[in-house]
Design a protein around this nucleic acid. Structure first.
Lengths: 181, 181
DNA sequence: TAAAAAATTAGACACTGTTCATTTTTCTCG
DNA sequence: CGAGAAAAATGAACAGTGTCTAATTTTTTA
């Protein structure tokens, strides 16, 4: 996957690589989706570990470290990172995979609460998801070449600037926009 | 494509639907990528037209109208919109398709220049691309179910709030962060 | 109408995910 | 140790895919 990319990934190639036959993979995992999910879950774990490592060796600018870590990982593992989003499973997402995703979001949530301590817990979670989506959008356009194609050389700096905009705007605020209730 | 989605899309099904044989499609278009590109280009045109229509029937809040238009279109055509991003062509992107993409970005650029008239032209373009990436990230997480999975009900409102944060922060500023030069 | 050009076809090819009866390996326990 | 049960692994077969191309049909041209 890391070498071929999601588009050219095949269960048979995996079987050959690990010295087993195709059938074994399907006996163990079940189907193709499960194979992808297993790979993507490992990617999520590595990604989360990378983010924690980035945070460990940084000082105050923890949100910036998070964004840098996001880009670092995506740029270092474009195919693995891409597979996370190129794969759309049909049917429900298994609980164990959702937990893996939640863990990644929890890291962001934790740091948002540090950066904006005045926010209510629920608002902090909403802001964390929003920041993650924002950075994801920039990274997606960066890695698929959209930014490069329109002559924008440093998407990472732009994403950092946007996050700064948002955090500056949020600081001192105790609640963020939310649906009517 | 609109019905089956990118994952279950096949050239043979298209051939059957339009009453031709598989070979004809490949004689005319060239290969599978070209078929997808033709469909996606049509989607881009319809999307751009939708955004212009949204802008036509709005007053001052033009950036908000743009974001609403983005979500409207994506939610009304999830499979077509999804195909835009699920498809990764190998090799260079053809010039005519790049032009189609540029036209969509041009709409955003034009409106950003209206919303932030003090910005230099280049900075406005950078901000436009950044806003587009930001909204894209929120829409991507909305349509793939990420937001719903963590209990966030209204991603559109969040995206709008983020855009407001950014624009408030940008107004009065005459240059945005950019790489060293 | 006859020849040239263009459009269309059907079939073959190599590849895919998927299934499953068969074989091989491993473990258990008398 | 060795026979029987359980588990693991196999590879052939199936329906599906994108892709190519020689052969055929249709259209245009002279």
């Amino acid at each position: 996957m890391a070498e071929k990319g999601f588009r050219n990934f095949s269960a048979r190639a995996v079987a050959k690589a690990i010295g087993y036959s195709v059938g074994t993979i399907y006996n163990v995992l079940g189907d193709f989706d499960a194979l992808i999910l297993a790979i993507n879950a490992e990617t999520l774990r590595r990604w989360a570990a990378h983010l924690e490592a980035c945070l460990d060796r940084t000082g105050n600018a923890r949100i910036a470290a998070l964004i840098d870590g996001y880009f670092d990982f995506a740029e270092a593992n474009p195919n693995l990172w891409g597979a996370l989003y190129e794969h759309r499973l049909d049917g429900e997402m298994p609980e164990w995979y959702r937990a893996e995703l939640a863990q990644l979001l929890a890291i962001v949530g934790r740091e948002v609460r540090v950066a904006a301590p005045d926010l209510e817990a629920e608002d902090a979670d909403r802001l964390a998801a929003s920041l993650l989506a924002m950075v994801h959008g920039h990274a997606a356009y960066a890695l698929d070449g959209t930014f490069a194609r329109i002559g924008i050389a440093d998407p990472r700096a732009i994403a950092l600037a946007r996050a700064e905009d948002v955090l500056t705007q949020i600081s001192g605020r105790t609640s963020v926009a939310r649906p009517d209730r």
